[in-house]
Nucleic acid binder design. Sequence first.
RNA 1: GGCGCAUUAGUCUAGCUGGUUUAGGACGCCGCCCUCUCAAGGCGGAGAUCACGGGUUCGAAUCCCGUAUGCGCUACCA
Length: 476
Amino acid sequence: MTTKVRFAPSPTGYLHVGGARTALFNWLFAKHTGGKFILRIEDTDKERSTEEAIEAILASMSWLGLDWDEGPFYQTERLDIYQKEAQKLVESGSAYECYCTPEELEKRRQEALSSRGAPRYNRRCHDLSSKEASAYQARGLKPSIRFYSEDKGETIVEDLVRGRVVFDNAELDDLIIMRPDGLPTYNFAAVIDDLDMGMTHVIRGEDHLPNTPRQIQIYKAMEAKPPAFAHLSMILGEDKAPLSKRHGAASVEVFRDQGYLSDALINFLALLGWAFDDKTTLFSREELKTHFGLDKVTKSPAVFDTAKLDWMNGQYIRDLSDAELTEKLLPFWQDAQLLPAEEITGEMREELIFLASICRERLIKLSDIIGLTDFFFKDVDFDERAVNKVLKKEGAKESLEAVAAKLNSIDNWSHQVIDEELRALAEEIGIKPGKLFQPIRVAISGRMVSPPLFESLEALGKETSLARIDAAKTLT
RNA sequence: GGCGCAUUAGUCUAGCUGGUUUAGGACGCCGCCCUCUCAAGGCGGAGAUCACGGGUUCGAAUCCCGUAUGCGCUACCA
């Protein structure tokens, strides 16, 4: 039997990292088992679903490289299917029309709650006579459809990650499956679609575990075999509360914009609730596909540790070739207005590749390139502390003058030559190399920290380097 | 309130068919080395009475029960 799984987000916002992890596990499961991965948009909540959210989710999925084999399917385009199936359940006695209004239901719920009772639906409309029904209809009321749920015995969920979970049927009440406006409700639409689309496994968030017995009852009522279930634990913020916007970055597009590589995010997410062995932490997508298995999925919730993601992202950045890194850096330079938006080729591109090569070990996120290289593109913006600590120091002016003279004499402007000459100069003057180099760094970059000095001088060019050193003398 | 799930170092986790574990790896942290700054890299270190309390057993992180804590569901949200 070939497997088939799906990711079924509701388009009420961007793609959350928790959702991304669910999508990833489904995708990996499909790839690992040679099955199909489908995308379904659960947009039955008209109030909260938006077109922008759909776009955002699709864009994030693509960026993550989680390609789907079928879909995206939209539940709002399948309304007739749900209506037909609901009607069948009504005819078979597994569902019934309910005319209770949301207000009435809410009132009864509050009453039940305040008198320590369980807020369950009382089946008031179950045995409505056709006379009573037409009376409601005459008042212009449209019925919702409720599922008549079994209230004796128990429903067992054989969860692939949690094991056997038993629910007492008496705990489940008659849930609404169709709203009066003809839109299905989550638990019903999911069952119909998973059945209709031939899902063999349903891998989703832990928050759906309590829904599962209800859904199993619906499958039973339809005389259909439920798929296998696997419920993934939640992803938490540093404070152990479920991850949300409040924690800063919770959407994958934010990670993308900050300069995380999708390979790194994928690797990181894969390890949130899954481990292959007791040693390996870095996995390529291919390795993930060959090793992934539901049997290795963890049960307990996981805190999203940005520090570890940062480390991992650095690993992936260092794995890129200079040209690849440059390609990924381009949009960041452009967004920062350091580079024109048009395509960059030729000598300019070569220079950028050189910059990328000298910065790569200093990058945690791609966006870090801005603070590291802006002085190559525009005038120096002096950091006051650097000026005071370095340029205003005794002897800085003399050092800079000596350096300027030495640099001026260099014809072959390369970092190797600059390196040799400046070290020789330090020896001549009799000061430590570091002491000589630091004022140069501040002069050309305005800061105490920069990419490697000699490479930076080379990239800047002889003329600009000398001009900046000369200008810095006025600050000593 | 009811029901369900979870609980190994700051974090992600391995181990969980009981003994080979003085609980392994990774991030982070600390130190040393390297070094033109910052990183990266190399080496080393600290950090876990395996939530707590009982029980079963010759022996428990591993099995059972209870408690606590956290989270989820209890919607005409998914």
